[in-house]
Design a binder for these strands. Structure first.
Lengths: 338, 338
DNA sequence: CTGAAAGCGCTTACAG
DNA sequence: CTGAAAGCGCTTACAG
């Protein structure tokens, strides 16, 4: 049987309260007493029961991170940083997967109240804004990573619109005119705030350059993953001349796009430039290395954690939105038009 | 304030015990009573307090998954499947990261007792066998994914040695003779059971083909990631003639290797064939698509979960080892020597 | 089929 | 600086 505070107290000849004081270190304890208690703690190999502590304190020390798909490189990198940062601050992390499904996102929020967690960091993909606001009972402390309609929830995100505009400008500066995007928002297929903002940034840049938008170049995909992106681009190439450049709304899709281009015998960047978004770890190692929108995932994790801690502390605190800076990292996959 | 069973009982005009019976559905409850209770449950938006339940039952419904690095594609894919499968079976999953650090792996095992978890699935990288056995107090129910020295812990893994042998045979059949490996075991750098077994499989194939092993072709890396693999291969190419083929002990390293080869102007597979291990999602989309050892990550997740459930149920059950089948998937990155 | 009581292990006022 | 008591919310024998 595991030892309890009571066992430790008996062995050390003190009351449970004193043991608790030694463990939690809030109230000062006389050194001699402390030593006796610590010896007993060691001897009995005492490990606190966190269920009991959680029941008593109303806090479990566990937070949840809900992502659409842990197998996506971007999500995985974000999760890594988040878990690491959370551990450093003494939190344990429970992982939930929403499968890019709005209903499931809602369910996670309501389940968060059940599952021993003190708060929830949610990375939604769909336009879940209405859900996050919730008439689904009181929300647990929640922070959103990403851009959803502003509904009073704390948020952490990059400026997708500006970043997409800058990437499009980079491609324009290289002399590209017919620039396709993959991951466009399309009611019929997939709508997300992120997608709409990135597309808006793309349109901003085209408009500023006086280039008319060609709807055929806005390629929607059902899922932001390499396979669907490759398939969508291949289909596009079946029916249209190859574009000058392809700007993919994630690096994962860019890898799929590069595969589809290679499948048609098109050279990157000789025939078509390719750019991504997220600067995943693999971006620097694919051949050719991928130009991407880069930002510090650790910074996102830290900002989300800080926001969540604040929200857990004070549910009524004013809403905050943290914008994480980004840069355009140019690599071999984008080159001037000869 | 959240409603408790007591509030529900009062509203429904029954005792807390009856509410509990309705919720847990073990003891039959008269339909009329059941309905009244369910109405009260809904009206009060009752959500059980899992800390209390955990304290009472000695089970939390949470298990931990400990991985070296969540940002690695293989780990991320495994985690995705594991979390999904665990949720389907009613478990929540806590994620821990060991950072490929043996001490940290041990710490996780001992901390598992603290952290509200009923059991632990551990994917160790280093030769942690001695730690898993543990004179560190009683082990929590633990299952290991991967190959460690057999010490009485339940395990789930692929047959690394056979898979590596088969991949090496594939490369030999293509006419390659000077086959390098990346991820070799090297006392000075990095030792792991997985590494040793894959290297042993490679050696098995060479021996069967009557080819003498060249130690220079066994390239060790400090971390099984694209960057270190690319650097190690580049350094190798500085000092040696290019090998016929490179067999990387993970796909992540294979991507790094392909990058290094491209950096030297070497064509894959024209000049050098490249093979990996794990068949990560990106393997099919890199250019050229990567030949790899493939296995069902979902099957690993399910086997680990089943083993853990069994172990939680019966700590004294005999040890079991589940071997997950693999196949060699050949893609464009490996081709016959012309 | 249902009720009243006890207790899981912890910590927090309340006294000293 | 320390002790004795109470209670967090749940479920499980124990009675009826």
């Amino acid at each position: 049987m595991r030892a309890t505070v009571r066992d430790v107290a008996t062995l050390a000849g003190v009351s449970p309260k004193t043991v608790s004081n030694v463990i939690n270190g809030v109230v000062p304890v006389r050194p001699a007493t402390r030593e006796r208690v610590e010896a007993a703690l060691r001897e009995l190999d005492y490990v606190p029961n966190l269920s009991a502590r959680g029941l008593r304190n109303g806090r479990t020390g566990v937070i949840a991170l809900a992502l659409p798909d842990l197998a996506t490189a971007y999500s995985a990198e974000l999760a890594k940083e988040f878990v690491e940062a959370a551990h450093e601050r003494g939190w344990a992390v429970q992982i939930e997967q929403s499968g890019a499904n709005a209903e499931r996102e809602l369910e996670l929020i309501s389940r968060a109240r059940t599952h021993l967690v003190d708060g929830l960091v949610l990375n939604p993909t769909t336009l879940v804004g209405s859900g996050v606001e919730g008439d689904h009972g009181p929300l647990p402390p929640t922070v959103v990573i990403g851009e959803v309609e502003p509904r009073g929830v704390d948020q952490v995100h990059v400026d997708s619109r500006r970043a997409a505009r800058e990437m499009t400008e980079h491609l324009l500066e290289l002399g590209h005119r017919r620039i396709a995007i993959i991951g466009a928002s399309d009611d019929a297929v997939f709508r997300s705030a992120t997608s709409e903002l990135r597309q808006a940034g793309y349109e901003d840049a085209l408009a500023a350059a006086g280039i008319a938008e060609d709807p055929a170049l806005c390629i929607a995909v059902a899922e932001w993953a390499p396979g669907p992106a490759a398939a969508a681009l291949a289909e596009h190439l079946d029916r249209h001349e190859a574009p000058d450049a392809v700007f993919c709304f994630t690096d994962a899709m860019a890898i799929g796009a590069m595969s589809a281009l290679a499948g048609r015998g098109l050279d990157v960047p000789g025939d078509v430039s390719v750019a991504g978004f997220d600067d995943i770890q693999g971006a620097a190692f694919v051949v050719p290395a991928l130009t991407s929108v880069s930002f510090d995932k650790r910074a996102i994790a830290l900002a989300a954690l800080t926001a969540l801690e604040r929200r857990i502390e004070d549910g009524a605190a004013p809403r905050k939105v943290a914008i994480i800076p980004h840069t355009i990292v140019t690599r071999a996959s984008t080159a001037p038009r000869g």
